[in-house]
Write a protein that binds this DNA or RNA. Structure first.
Lengths: 202, 202
DNA sequence: ATGAAATTTTGCAGAAGGCGCAAGTTTTCT
DNA sequence: AGAAAACTTGCGCCTTCTGCAAAATTTCAT
């Protein structure tokens, strides 16, 4: 967990974060990512346009960078948990352990959600990142259930878990005061355990 | 269901279909959509490049046009079924009623699947189309379950169904001779009914 | 059938995004 | 300190896509 990485790596990470944050801030100010250009983002982060394109393939990717960081953490955590926990619990607990509600300011998350919801291209890109996450995780789930990644079961399990996570997060962000995030995630996962055809009663 | 539409509309539909098919054929020949340009597609379909862009925002959309047609049919069917059937059954039966395995040649579907799988941008676009489908369908599911589109339950139900459909289709396409498509879909949906945490035994 | 109205197609010009390259700059390592 | 490695930048180029206005096609009323 220590990061005694060299100066170079820290600078790169800082630049990438600065670009991502600049993208977000500008999208917020201009009320939508469409109105923001790579040039602006680069300028706001204090680097050249060319450098922006060295880090991200486009403004969408820049704005969604934090998401891809989260999936990286999720995968690491899941890999570890899958060796000690039943896979379904591992999936749920890995989602919970992201502690989204602690790691980010609530208003920021709501803002981010609004920006993404309002942009078809952002929705699409984010969906694509979910597919990537699916591909990266299906091997873990298959291994944990003693099946192949090409089998039906592990993919249904993983699909359920990812949907569950996405919807629970959205739900909590929409109304953060109703329940703690962990409770929404737990409830969402519980719905899948009980069978989806009947709603579980509180 | 009759289509006494005027000549104009039929021509437009024909052009759109021709473009989509040209995109597919070229992607097949060149082994990937990346190697295909809008110019080529337009030329192959016998229209100008500009016209191509009147119909589709890009080659990805052109290639995935049949998918969007399918979702349109699915939505129509679902709307109808949701008035007479429990929503979960309606979702399952609407998927089955697409009769994907009859409507398209198996080898074609396998080819298509391979093309999409090999292209990150196609995967992303397809995922985006699923999100669109989700948005379009969530109202129907909410209404059918007496809930709001912002509630947890209808979105979990719909998410389950769409994941189920996608994975079942993939599974059948990967090995069409093992079982009929309808059986795979049914099994997939049944897994959700039984609760996802334990695999159902054949 | 005919001419006017509506719609579609097309070419052109140009904006915007993104990439390869090579030179310049910064960090690393000895 | 100085050479090697890695990063940044500017430049030119290519591809994709859009706005616009003219030309072609279809529709519709007479």
């Amino acid at each position: 967990m220590a990061e005694p990485t060299g100066l170079r790596e820290r600078k790169k990470a800082a630049t990438k974060a600065a670009l991502s944050q600049a993208a977000f801030r500008l999208a917020m100010e201009k009320d939508g990512i469409e109105a923001v250009s790579p040039d602006e983002i680069a300028a706001a982060a204090g680097v050249s346009t060319r450098t922006f394109h060295n880090y991200f393939r486009g403004k969408e990717e820049a704005l969604l960078y934090d998401f891809s960081e989260m999936t990286r953490k999720l995968l690491d955590d899941l890999r570890e948990r899958s060796r000690h926990q039943p896979i379904w619990d591992a999936l749920r607990d890995a989602c919970i352990s992201l502690h989204l509600s602690d790691a980010y300011d609530v208003q920021l998350l709501q803002c981010r959600e609004a920006i993404v919801r309002n942009s078809p291209t952002l929705i699409t890109h984010q969906a694509g990142q979910f597919m990537e996450l699916f591909q990266d995780a299906v091997g873990i789930v298959a291994q944990a259930t003693g099946t192949e990644p090409t089998d039906l079961y592990p993919r249904l399990v993983l699909g359920s878990a990812l949907i569950s996570m996405k919807i629970a997060n959205e739900q909590w962000i929409a109304d953060p005061d109703a329940e703690p995030l962990e409770a929404v995630i737990a409830k969402s996962f519980a719905q899948f355990e009980a069978g989806i055809t009947r709603p579980i009663t509180e």
